[in-house]
Design a protein around this nucleic acid. Structure first.
Length: 124
RNA sequence: CCAGGAGGCUGGGCAGUCGCGGCUUUUUGCCGAGGAAAGUCCGGGCUCCACGAAACAAGGGUGGCGGGUAACGCCCGCCCGGGGCAACCCGAGGGAAAGUGCCACAGAGAGCAGACCGCCUCGUUCGCGAGGUAAGGGUGAAAGGGUGCGGCAAGAGCGCACCGGGGUGCUGGCAACAGCGCUCGCACGGCAAACCCCACCCGGAGCAAGGCCAAAUAGGGGCCUCGCGCCAUGCAAGUGGCAGGGACGUUUCGUCCCGAGAGGCCCGGGUUGGCUGCUCGAGCCGGCGGGCAAUCGCCGGCCUAGACGAAUGGCUGCCCCCGAGCGGCCGGUCUCCUUCGGGAGAUACCGCGCACGGGACAGAACCCGGCUUACAGGCCUCCUGGCACU
């Protein structure tokens, strides 16, 4: 089976309301998509680095998801990986293990609390 | 060999495996980032918009001369000025005799010059005063040509020679310009990256340009068919009454609501989306020819990413380059011993082996020509100066 990529902005925004699991190199979002199969998307903001760094991170994340999703992904869910600082240098095998852990937590329904927007004050 | 100058190339390689984007005969196979893809600073192609042509105005740009080019602010060659022993490097390099403006501070004086000190002459009450003088001192970024000789009271282009400069003629050069002659004692300080003047160039916006297709739902327009009860009032919209239909409640009845559209066909616009523009082009490679060169011509061959939440990646092995570390190692080198066979020790340096770490700047987004900036390491060519050798 092929795993589709997510291309619509609305889907990315919807995933924000799903299960969220944070790991050192990335944040995993999982959100039910009403029967459209396993899909994935990648978000790397300009905060992470220049075009070379961002593209490299996206390529590595795609490879991670391509390997992991058919076996460990959540059925009929959108999976989004958000890049964090340090995700480019991090060892690929380590990232693979961390993605497996994150998917296991998401399957069990245990996510980290969604990020709360603080109108003022420093972000933790 | 050392030091220096100029220019060009390259930007890890091979293999396996799992993937991604295109094309494909959809099994299979082929192709798939850069020299800067970057900054978006110039110049074009291509689109749409505006516009009789052209000129002028405004605004912006360019600025020695000649050539190259589709074009350029780019490139090549040359000239002039400056720097360097030299190779070579640097220069926004038109006009200051069209006009306006500025030249701070210092200084006596800063642009139709100017006597502070000094020098000279005369006078003198010996304190100094009057006059001459731009050679010397001092100030300054700059003091109205420079050096020398003559001259003079002291001086001064006052006179002369050479250099510089202005004017003019001849010669060479396509030209910028150069050389030579004659002439003028010198009249015209600098700044135009101050305004300005002169010559030449420029319409605007950009592939989110532009073109095509178009579902569901809602809405617009046209035509046809059927329908749009009665009374009162009002220009009309509307309002009231009666009749009709519906909802609630078991019915009489009460309360509330509805009461003019419906159907068919056609047309146009158009959101999300899809297709196109989209890669055959001022193209790349090789050869020959013209030209000092930039570059141009001819012939032959080749097709070389076209993505759009955006494809080039992950892992593994071998090799290459660099770094520091470990090992004294059948190498080199050094020290000591020696029966001259060799032996023992050392390891800064060269070489060797072993694991370890690292391999730059950076990712196509309509396409070309440039410029600028970033860049680990490696390779090549030419030239200059010096030293050594034959």
């Amino acid at each position: 089976m092929t795993v589709e990529t997510i291309r619509k902005r609305a889907d990315f925004l919807a995933a924000n309301r799903g299960i969220r699991v944070a790991r050192p190199g990335f944040v995993l979002l999982a959100h039910p998509n009403s029967g459209r199969g396993k899909r994935f998307g990648v978000t790397v903001t300009k905060k992470i680095g220049n075009a070379v760094v961002r593209n490299r991170m996206k390529r590595r994340f795609r490879e991670l998801l391509r390997v992991a999703l058919p076996g460990e992904g959540l059925a009929d869910h959108d999976h989004i990986l958000i890049g964090r600082d340090g995700g480019v240098e991090r060892d690929f095998a380590l990232l693979r293990d961390e993605l497996a852990q994150a998917l296991a937590r998401a399957t069990a329904g245990k996510g980290d609390p969604p990020r709360r927007r603080k109108p003022h004050g420093p972000r933790n």
